[in-house]
Nucleic acid binder design. Sequence first.
DNA 1: CAAGTAAATAAAAATCATTTCTATTTAAGC
DNA 2: GCTTAAATAGAAATGATTTTTATTTACTTG
Lengths: 146, 146
Amino acid sequence: MERSNHLLDDQFQMFETACRRAGLRLTHQRLEVYRELARAEDHPSAETLHQRLRRSIPTLSLDTVYRTLATLACHRLINKVDTVESQARFEATQHQHHHLICSKCKQITDFEWHSIDALPLPAQANEWGQVESKNVVVYGLCAHCQ
Amino acid sequence: MERSNHLLDDQFQMFETACRRAGLRLTHQRLEVYRELARAEDHPSAETLHQRLRRSIPTLSLDTVYRTLATLACHRLINKVDTVESQARFEATQHQHHHLICSKCKQITDFEWHSIDALPLPAQANEWGQVESKNVVVYGLCAHCQ
DNA sequence: CAAGTAAATAAAAATCATTTCTATTTAAGC
DNA sequence: GCTTAAATAGAAATGATTTTTATTTACTTG
Ligand SMILES: [Mn+2]
Ligand SMILES: [Mn+2]
Ligand SMILES: [Zn+2]
Ligand SMILES: [Zn+2]
């Protein structure tokens, strides 16, 4: 289930290019925050990411993690995930997918649903405005929490 | 587009019954918080609701609004809406629907999509655990913000 | 490959959203 | 009406995130 290093390297190359295009400097911290998020499969919060990164960059400050995540989300290089939780959660992947969220343990799991992706929105939605994204959020109890 | 007073009255009767069943006291504040939320069509935050309610109940405290919303959400009498925003937003309606969220003005609009409601989730989701809810969140720019 | 410069960082303080604490009030059962 | 546990108001505390400021650093230009 884990993405290959090769694919991650590709993603990382694209990230550096995208930063340059966006006029964002390639700082050590920024690269490492992105790399850690890209490696993660659990939609970590800023705090979680900070804890993980401290092992390799002990001086990294939490506000830098927050600032970096905000900057990257603003440039659409990462996504802030919709949840009902107090801590915001993030992901680096750009592939179209949806979320299963456990009401109990708050774990967020990706899933694919191509028939939805292909289905056009109802007329009401198109009249509303210009659609940018369309995602399904499923709540429930994961197998582990039942 | 506004719900009739008759329907609101019905909803309100059901709310009182549900509170009794849940062992929740029918306090003036609780009834008014619910009534104000049921009347609202804009998925207000706790703060917004508090501002509106202060007109009629000047002594109502903000923490009571927060506490009440948390209690009612816990008993499934209202919903906390999934968003990427910092302030939590709420709705009283229980009918199955989905959300259009404007990335700019953050306005949340309801829409219906019956073909999705009827469509079974992919196998991957059913293996994940016990599903409780399934909602679509659409981001984009509303007509007004374009 | 040195400056020069604007952007980014670390650390601390501030702010915003929400929760907790405590004394007081009140709904509901008797 | 009286009792009692639940709910409220107001204040203080907490948790998450943002802002401020002085310092450092990536990238430009000569
Ligand atoms: Mn995801
Ligand atoms: Mn709604
Ligand atoms: Zn779980
Ligand atoms: Zn808008």
